[in-house]
């Protein structure tokens, strides 16, 4: 992971921002695309065109690396095809599962904090790596509204064990850390201190909202100050190469997003 290039700050790609991304390419260090959203040649062509204007990262959401039932070969082939066309510097996915027993959950579900979960992710990452030879893989921590029974370790320990076992980098989602700290009542800085910060390659930032007494990572609001503080704490302690501002719902004007990109860039510059 040591040789991976530095990109700076950017945004997660949404179709609605296709032209904004190209128009403001000088203000973006990087753009992150989701291969799961590419349903054919036109989508792939768009992604390749964007990659000609701005460096593109690929971020998977549906491989279900934590599924005990293994990976779906069609999905792995799809990711490999997009990777081949876009040639990103790394590929990232989540420490989570999204389907089991023929049911597509439609969201990232947490894994139990067990050795069996570590071994399952490791086996699935080996299979993925065989389809993406030579490409560095990053794994992302998720926001989990509930913990599964039978824990044999803490969440940070699970993340560390998986990264060790799979020899992958960490995509650290600071908004997920913020959400988990609120919902599970822990200190986010203590949590960050227990992670292998030397493995952090990329950071995600987003904004959520409170609903029925729970803080939800909805990607529908601007980045809260708490997450900016976590970024300011993290940057001098790690070698972050890219910061992505994520937004899925209630899409703002692109200028609002660019203001957040500039702020992330300023935090990155202080450390450089």
């Amino acid at each position: 992971m040591a040789e991976l290039p530095f990109f700076g700050a950017g945004v997660s790609y949404r179709d609605a921002w296709r032209w904004d991304v190209v128009r403001h390419r000088d203000a973006l260090g990087v753009v992150e695309c989701i291969p799961d959203n590419i349903a054919g040649e036109a989508g792939l062509r768009d992604c390749v065109l964007i990659a000609q204007a701005v460096p593109v990262l690929l971020h998977g959401i549906g491989l279900s690396l934590g599924s005990a039932g293994g990976l779906d070969p069609d999905r792995v082939r799809h990711v490999a095809r997009v990777v081949e066309a876009v040639e990103p510097p790394w590929f990232s996915e989540h420490i989570a599962f999204t389907r089991a027993g023929g049911v597509e959950i439609g969201h990232l579900a947490p894994l139990p904090f067990t050795r069996e979960a570590v071994a399952t992710v490791a086996a699935n990452v080996r299979q993925l790596r065989a389809a993406l030879p030579g490409l560095p893989i990053l794994l992302e921590n998720i926001a989990y509204p509930f913990s599964l029974p039978g824990a044999e370790m803490g969440e940070a320990e699970l993340v560390r064990a998986i990264l060790d076992e799979t020899d992958t980098g960490l995509l650290l989602d600071l908004e997920n850390v913020h959400a988990n700290a609120l919902n599970h009542g822990y200190d986010p800085i203590e949590y960050l201190e227990s992670l292998p910060l030397d493995r952090v390659v990329e950071v995600h930032l987003a904004g959520g909202l409170w609903q029925e007494g729970q803080y939800l990572d909805t990607h529908s609001r601007c980045v809260p100050e708490e997450s900016w503080h976590l970024l300011e704490w993290l940057i001098p302690r790690s070698r972050v190469r890219a910061v992505i501002i994520e937004r899925d719902d209630d899409l703002p004007a692109f200028s609002a997003l660019l203001a957040e990109v500039r702020r992330a860039e300023e935090v990155l510059c202080v450390a450089r």
Binding site: A100, G101, V103, I105, P112, P149, G150
Partner: peptide, 28 residues
Amino acid sequence: MSLDDLQRRLALSLAGRGPAPAGLDENT
């Protein structure tokens, strides 16, 4: 309960087609 079993039960439960797996709060 194996991981496979736990994930199947949880997926079914989240889809509204089964009870919460043992050890998980139904309200949550």
